[in-house]
């Protein structure tokens, strides 16, 4: 950081406070520490549940800031939702000596981390667990972990106890800097949105389906904005011609409109614990989307 700038990317989902955290960091660095700095939000306005990216550039006082807009490469990437790690775009461009900080409970080590540079630093912090216990914002916990990890940022006033963080090693297998990713261009293919994974849009709850109770009335289907309920032909000779078989949680954003609408209590709100959605998901496109 002495001679070059520090580039930090916040990877998040609308509603988790990443834009605010990025802005707070940059403004403290500029106004309090006298550094040169900028904060750039990827999308304004921020839709709830949509992928959100915020970029912070910092440079020593005498050094002019280079670059603006979205960061293709970064020294640090802070991931607000562990589900985002499923998309390689989340950590694209991480430098080989970079730092990845992600929010997840203890023991959660997604396989995707193998794609990180072998020489990068990886830090996990149970931001949501800590936030729930201390009745504070998880975004503040993540910001605190970031500031604790970089000596220069300790004086911002955000740094938290480094003991909250776990430094993981031996995960990454990539050699050198990670390449940046680019979005596909040209005419989009029909229905190609099915490759998107929207599970990160859920904020702690999901609808849990009880087939025994279901009367297959389709009241839930007609109000579900995310088109993620799976229907099949009913069993031959059975009571129902069409039957609801479950929810494809890849697309379910957890709005719980189905729960609110169901007349038979066959859809119930349930706290989402790790692995729950994967265990109960019924795929809409089993032959296409893995």
């Amino acid at each position: 950081m002495d001679s070059r700038s520090l580039e930090i990317r916040f990877e998040s989902v609308g509603g988790l406070g990443a834009h605010a955290a990025a802005e707070a960091l940059a403004s403290a660095a500029v106004l309090k520490l006298g550094l040169n700095g900028s904060a750039f939000p990827s999308c304004v306005p921020e839709r709830k549940g949509a992928c959100v990216r915020s970029c912070v550039r910092l440079a020593p006082p005498g050094q002019a800031l280079r670059g603006s807009g979205e960061l293709q490469a970064a020294d640090a990437i802070v991931v607000f939702h562990v589900g985002l790690l499923r998309d390689p775009a989340t950590f694209a461009g991480l430098r080989k000596d970079g730092t990845l900080i992600y929010a997840a409970p203890a023991k959660s080590v997604p396989d995707e981390l193998a794609a990180l540079p072998a020489t990068a630093r990886v830090i996990r912090v149970d931001a949501y667990g800590i936030a729930a216990k201390q009745k504070c914002e998880a975004s503040g916990v993540l910001l605190g972990a970031l500031c604790a990890a970089f000596p220069l940022l300790r004086e911002t006033g955000f740094a938290r106890d480094a003991k909250e963080c776990e430094e993981l090693s031996g995960l990454g297998e990539h050699e050198g800097d990670l390449p940046p990713v680019s979005e596909p261009n040209g005419e989009p293919r029909l229905g190609s949105s099915i490759w998107n994974d929207l599970s990160v849009a859920r904020s702690g709850s999901l609808p849990s389906f009880n087939r025994e109770r279901c009367i297959h009335c389709a009241m839930c289907e007609i109000v579900c904005p995310d088109l993620c309920l799976v229907w099949e032909e009913g069993e031959k000779g059975g009571r129902f011609q069409r039957e609801l078989t479950g929810v494809d949680y890849r697309y379910c954003k957890g709005c719980l409109r189905c729960v609110e609408t169901c007349p038979a209590s066959a859809m119930l709100k349930k706290a989402e614990t790790p692995g729950l959605a994967e265990r109960f998901a019924v795929p809409l496109f089993p032959d296409l989307v893995e």
Partner: peptide
Amino acid sequence: VAPGHGACPGCGALATLH
């Protein structure tokens, strides 16, 4: 219209289109 769009959770415009 296929799933995987980026509307907010609960968005009524998508329910309308559906």
